[in-house]
Design a binder for these strands. Structure first.
Lengths: 316, 316
DNA sequence: TGCAAGATGCGTCGATTGATGCGTCGATTT
DNA sequence: AAATCGACGCATCAATCGACGCATCTTGCA
């Protein structure tokens, strides 16, 4: 095979970790180049890289580094089981620390995802998200996996003004995963009766995309306008499509202009239901007639209810 | 050209290096005259000179000599990074050949797409785009179908300050379609060596997503940071992952700060290739060493050229 | 709920390694 | 005779080494 032995730096870059981390893995876990003279430079052969890749994959799936290294050291081939089963085998192991993104008690899966994000490991991120959606559904994936990581990134970002590239790359993967869910559903016969839109100036559309994916998963078709929708454009869209329900998302107070909601309520062909989603909205300032779902699950439930009632009305 | 074989000394002088260095390059990197009898004098043909010139240029740009030599050796018939032109990759990428005004099949399709957009008909939009990508590939879909529609929407949008919701919804559909292309490819074994990023403050990422999809279509993996990436974050990502090529997209002049490019070029372990994409960049203001692809097809071709660039390992 | 203990990633520092360009030398080619 | 060859060695400098410590996360427990 190609005796293309990589230097320590090149290997670290490949994995998305620091050179010191690589050295630490060698010292703490015995996970280093197969042959290495102390004091000399490390050269990672392709066999070593395979081992490190196991390490990468397992830690991205939430296995603690110590445990992952144990597997990587033993198994030289792809005889390594998935992260879930490995995790199941080791309970009560301490984990976490370093420059990790805080995910609190959200669980190993979230921690692994956070680690993959720090390494800018697009592949691992996307795989994890996709698998979680397939297993647990969009809502649980959002609440238990993605949101903790996003919040963690946000906190870190606010504290140290770093990690912007991590946040962007991660958001992109999330967005793509949700888009895949939406695209994966067959086109419904009936035109969508639910309109999703961000508030004016509102840039964060990820939660709304989560809602869109959740709706698609539940078989509810919708129309998604996306971020930064001016009121006039929103009213225009409503006038043109006459949705039964409208969800307006506001992430920060600044974008939560209650006048937008009032405009919807007083619009010709006003939607049956107006939902104000997101932490931006203040309960007191909402005009009467606006519903404020507390979380994603409730929003989905409301939307499903709307769909069902419409179906019944159409059937009778 | 056949008669003009330079001696070792002349060649060395031409390159500005010592004669011994030339000999060293031959021994250490195998970068010598195409035919040479051991013990006899070396005669460098023009083809050899081309190879040596690549070596010189790359090392002058800060690329490690071992890596540069690998490139020079491999790129005897291919063209090189930093060179004026690179032949379009043949496999998987369709060339943007007939650069005529969209007629024939693209004309009606674009019109239909625009109409679907005005209708806010998500399903029809997505279907049309997906079909076009499957049939004509990403590059042609972008150039002949999507871009005309986007430009059309943009023009009217600017004139009437309306249609914002149309633009958003359409952009989402395009984005989702591109994401599907990227997600549809199997995960490559090697980590991505190409980094895509918007310039600082730059909000338009759709063209970059088109590039990402085109790369995925061509089997080239990449990392996509997305819109509004500050320089520090970009440099951080580069330092962490050491990509072989970086594409910076700027849509409008305001975001086309050449200092960003300079920062990339002077960064430690700078990428082999720095591409400045988008209409924001002015050719005159670009620092030397930055390549400015004129269209999507050329950008893809350039990226393909560095696809399997070896990592910057220590020389053997 | 709050806190101590363990786990982990990585920045820093002085010393060392290793890649690279090139000068030198005796022999050989042109 | 001039230029070059192959071999050897040397100076230089970026990359890396080993050790240490720090900041921060997670977990068990009060």
């Amino acid at each position: 095979m190609a005796d293309e032995a990589l230097s320590a730096g090149a290997t670290a870059r490949r994995l998305g970790v620091a050179v010191t981390t690589l050295r630490t893995w060698h010292q703490r876990y015995g996970l280093g180049p197969s042959q290495h003279v102390p004091g000399h430079h490390r050269r990672y052969t392709s066999a070593d890289l395979v081992r490190l890749d196991i390490m990468r994959r397992l830690t991205a799936e939430g296995v603690s580094p110590a445990e992952a290294a144990r597997w990587a050291r033993r198994a030289s081939d792809d005889t390594v089981p998935g992260g879930a089963s490995v995790r199941a085998g080791s309970r009560g192991v301490r984990d976490g620390g370093g420059t990790a993104i805080p995910v609190g008690r959200a669980g190993p899966a979230a921690r692994g995802l956070a680690r993959a994000a720090m390494r800018l490991d697009t592949v691992a991120i996307s795989e994890t998200i996709t698998r979680s959606i397939a297993t647990d559904g969009v809502v649980r994936t959002w609440d238990l996996l993605l949101r903790p990581v996003l919040v963690g990134i946000g906190e870190r970002h606010a504290a140290t003004a770093a990690l912007i590239e991590v946040e962007h790359l991660f958001s992109r993967c999330v967005s793509a995963a949700f888009a895949a869910v939406v695209a994966g559903r067959p086109a419904p016969a009936a035109p969508p009766r639910i309109l999703l839109s961000c508030a004016d100036e509102e840039q964060h559309s990820l939660p709304l995309e989560a809602l869109a994916a959740a709706l698609a998963e539940a078989g509810v078709s919708h129309r998604m306008l996306g971020a930064r929708v001016p009121v006039s454009a929103l009213l225009d869209a409503i006038g043109r499509t006459g949705p039964a329900a409208v969800v307006i998302w506001s992430h920060i107070r600044f974008t939560a202009d209650a006048a937008q909601l009032t405009a919807l309520l007083t619009a010709p062909r006003r939607p049956l239901l107006v939902l104000a989603g997101g932490p931006g909205w203040q309960a007191e300032t909402l005009p009467a007639g606006v519903i404020r779902p507390v979380d994603l699950a409730e929003a989905v439930a409301l939307a499903v209810a709307v769909r069902d009632s419409l179906d019944q009305a159409a059937a009778s």
